[in-house]
Structure formats: C-alpha cells, structure tokens
Design a protein around this nucleic acid. Structure first.
Lengths: 215, 215
DNA sequence: TGCTGTATAGTCCATGTGGACTAATCAGTC
DNA sequence: GACTGATTAGTCCACATGGACTATACAGCA
C-alpha cells in the first residue's frame, strides 16, 4: 500500500510517517508540505492513498483533493482537528472517503488507510456523528415527502402543466407546449390547485420545487 | 455499561451475548425477540445501549427504535446485513447512532457499544461509505447554493417580500403585511425579479423555496 | 350498461400582475 | 457636498390569472 502524507507541519509529517512506515503492509513513498507540491508528488509516485491535511497555506486540502482526484485514482483521507458540518461536507464532496481527527490513535490511522484503499469509507466517531446528525435532522425532509406525495397524486397532464408552471410559463405558453387550448391548460391548473390545496400558481411552483420535480 | 440485545433469531442473540458478556466493561442485562418485547424489557432494565435488529416480524427495528427513544435515554445500535441508502437513512432518522453489519468482527461490536455510549456515532465502513456518497452526491446542491447566493443579494425588505410571494400572498396582502403601499410592494418585487433574473412571481417562489427560505 | 375519472374545450368577468415610467426621503460613502 | 443605494410612493395600461360555470369524448371498471 503506497501512501503519501501532505501537511504543512513538519512534526505532523514525521509523526504520521513514523506510525505508518514500520508496518509491513504500508509504505510511505513521499511527503509534501502543500497542495501544489502534493499534486506534483502524486504524479511521480502514484500512491494508493493520500493523507491530506485540510488547513494549509496556499492551496488548501479541499482544492488539492479535487485537483488530485481529477488526475489520479488514489483515495484521499482528510486529517484535521475541525469537525463542523460545513467542513466535513465540503471535504467529502471533494471526494475524500476518509476523515480523521489529528489526535487519532496510531491503530486508527493505519486502519483508515486500509479501509479507504479497499473502497469503503472511514470516519472518526466524532465526524461520523456530525454526518449522521446531518442526515437524520435534514430539516424540510417531511415537507419534501409531503410535496412528493401530493405531486404523485396528479394525473400525467396535470404533472406536465405543474412542471411548466414551476418553470415560469404563462397559461398560454403551457397550452402551446402541451398542444392544447388555453382553457384546457387552465382546467388542468385548477385541478392542480385543488389537489395541492393552494391558492395560486406561485404556490404550485413552490410545491413542485419542494417535491424535487423541477427539471 | 448495561446492554440489551434485540433479535428474532435465537442464534444471533446467543452469539452477541457470548461476545459482549465476557468483557469487564459491558454487561448484557437482557435479550428480546421482538420490538414490543424490547420496549417492555427496556422499561424494566433501563439499559445504556440497545443492540437492535432491523428486520423482525411484527414491530420492526425502526418502529421499535422510535418508540424506545421516546421513553428512555438509551442509545441504539442497529444490526443488519442490508446497506441501502434507504434503510440506513430511515434507521438514522429514527435515532440510531450505530449501524453494524451482522458479520462484524467481535471487537467492532464492543467498540460500537462503547462509542455510542459516550455520545459519538459508529457505522461499519460499508455503511459509512453509503452515507458519505449520499452527502457527496446530493443532487440539486449546486442549484441550492446558487439560489441561496442570489437570495443573500436581496435587501431586507426585498427578502421579506420574496418570502411572502413564496407563501402565496398577493401584492396587496404583501403590502398589508409589510405596512407599505401597494406600489411599494410592487417595486420591491420588480427588484427581486431583476436580481433573480426571472420572468414572474412564480419563479420567485421557486427560487425562495430552492434557497431554503420558505418558513 | 351506467358510473367514474381523465382530457379536452368553451364563456364571462373581476381581480391580479407585469412593465414602464417618475419621484421623494434618508443613510452612508467618497 | 455630490453620489449611491434602499425604501418609500405614485400613475397608466395591457395582459394574465382565478373563479364559476357548462360540456363533449373516451377510457376502464363494477
């Protein structure tokens, strides 16, 4: 398992290398002090896993991860001491599958490397909790389910009309797009209003968006 | 650490008890074969952690978790062999902070119990990956960011007006609610339309909903 | 075979909305 | 002290929308 370590702090680089190198199944093939340097290093050493610090001067860990994953098929494990929803989300979105607190036990460090290398994900318990809470609380979820359920109760043509309303079309544009008379489009929308139990077309648009049906 | 084990399979109950009981820091204070039985057991034994199977006849693990967390302050670790986004999400939403594959190593089982007991989350690497991918791919995210950025560019009063539009108010109702003249409400909405670069109020409503600003 | 739901189409009229303007007041900025 | 942006307010008019109806045709179902 070929690994590179990216951190602006010399002590961290040395410590991580010191933990991983003695292991028979992991070899640290290089260290870098910044994002740009890491990308250069990855090009030449072709690592399986990159241990990446997030806060670094210059190109930060998130940018570096994005750039790195665009050109290699390495896996990335983020290392940091911050555990805000915001940061975790941005890092995972950049493509990292591992997330470690810097005070992690040596065993966990090696385990994280091996876990992401075989295609699974490894997050520290603290980060896992942050992620779980984000998914669990996901406000507006109930509202979305309700809107989706209402949308599913529409007929095919009512759905078409509703989507066009959400896209900002006028009644006559809807009639044109659906190849029907103006009065027909209006009748469909009256039905949609009834079924959604709303007052006007604006709320139809809001419901369609909430149901995730705006294309 | 007081633990109860809930599973409809006698062999699983015995195996889990056999793994956890020998440990000095964990005591299995009861086992149950179903959801209803588990709730009864939790009432009498007051466990710290409940290991809960998801697929059970009668009351399933998700329902049981919801009911159980409503009446005790125990933590729940789900046990299952399925790892679909759907199931993981429903279980986490029900309030579980642990999620194990049934073929988990004995060490991981005990670690999961201890991790959730101290308030963190523990997911098997496979489930962690499912969760990470859900967060990372989250379609519509870019659209949401864009809408939120546009919304942030509005002035205070324009924001108020925009929210009221999304709620389905007419111009005169907006004027009333904001204690301004009809023409003022219209002027604000003209500005909003300009800044959002949209054609009509329906699209204003859609953008406000997309930005997550509908109260 | 009649009932129900869907899709189509129409009329009439009150009200709402969009567009194009102008303009005063006030707060902060250069 | 002039300028800019925010907030307020106004007029006029064309067009869109909502509401309340009626009505035909066709499908599937009991």
């Amino acid at each position: 398992m070929r690994v590179i370590v990216v951190d602006d702090d010399f002590l961290v680089r040395a410590a991580v290398k010191g933990i991983l190198d003695p292991r028979a199944d992991i070899e640290v093939v290089g260290v870098a002090a910044g994002g740009a340097e890491a990308i250069e290093l990855a090009r030449t050493t072709r690592p399986d896993v990159v241990l990446m610090d997030i806060q670094m001067p210059g190109m930060d860990g998130i940018e570096a991860t994005r750039a790195l994953l665009a050109m290699t098929d390495a896996e990335v494990v983020a290392m940091t001491s911050i555990a805000t929803t915001e940061t975790v989300e941005r890092m995972l979105r950049a493509g990292a599958y591992g997330y470690l607190l810097k005070d992690t036990a040596p065993d966990a460090l090696a385990e994280a490397v091996l876990t992401v290398a075989r295609g699974d994900a490894f997050l520290s318990p603290r980060h896992t909790r942050v992620l779980v809470e984000r998914v669990a609380s996901d406000s507006g979820h109930a509202a979305h389910r309700h809107a989706a359920a209402l949308f599913a109760m529409l007929t095919d043509r009512e759905r078409d009309a509703a989507r066009l309303v959400a896209a900002g079309a006028t009644d006559s544009e809807i009639a044109l797009a659906m190849h029907v008379a103006l009065s027909t489009a209006k009748t469909h929308l009256q039905q949609v209003k009834l079924k959604f139990a709303v007052r006007n077309r604006t709320q139809i648009g809001v419901m369609v968006e909430r149901a995730g049906e705006t294309p």
